[in-house]
Amino acid sequence: MTIKRLIVITGLLFSIALHGGVPPPLHAEPATESRIKAAYLLNFARFVTWPDVAFESSVSPIVLCVLGEDSIDSALPTIQYKRVQDRPLVIQHIDTLADLPACHMLFVGEIKSPDLPQVLSALASRPILTVSSLPDFSLRGGMLTFIKAENRIRFEVNLSTTQMAGLTISSRLLKLARLVP
């Protein structure tokens, strides 16, 4: 094997690798963890049943509201407008609690004002599925909390708050959840 032949072969293999490309998206890729969580949100929408009154019509979208800052933001475009339960999933960023009535799901990020107790009391028993990565979110009155267990992203569920809000969660989802009293 001459050095020359080695270069030729290596060069050839690399040119195969190089010319297979397509024009790239320029934004940075979201972290794996955020993409997994976003995919979970889509699945939550799939396995939760809202009361009929929560939707204006049979074709109205499921509205996922996002309040506060969270790294999940960068991954949300991957689930925007996906169809679940025959409805499109629509993502809305909200700043005030006045926007709550339009939401079916609420993802709570890092928030200062309003603070978490204010948000939770404003939700009262509205049929809005609340999700967060904040520690002990379910214990403090939220519904679903992302947790990391054995190097995987899992979630906790507070069943009493979901029942009070009139939401039904599929047993398939509950099987994977850690229940919080």
Partner: peptide
């Protein structure tokens, strides 16, 4: 010379059980 390429695994196509089994650190 490598142009940035795009082919990330699409987690939204996975079942919820599969999602629950993805290891976070081994991916990163």
């Amino acid at each position: 010379l490598v142009p940035p390429l795009r082919a990330m695994e699409d987690f939204t196509e996975l079942s919820i059980e599969e999602l629950a089994n993805i290891e976070v650190t081994s991916v990163s």
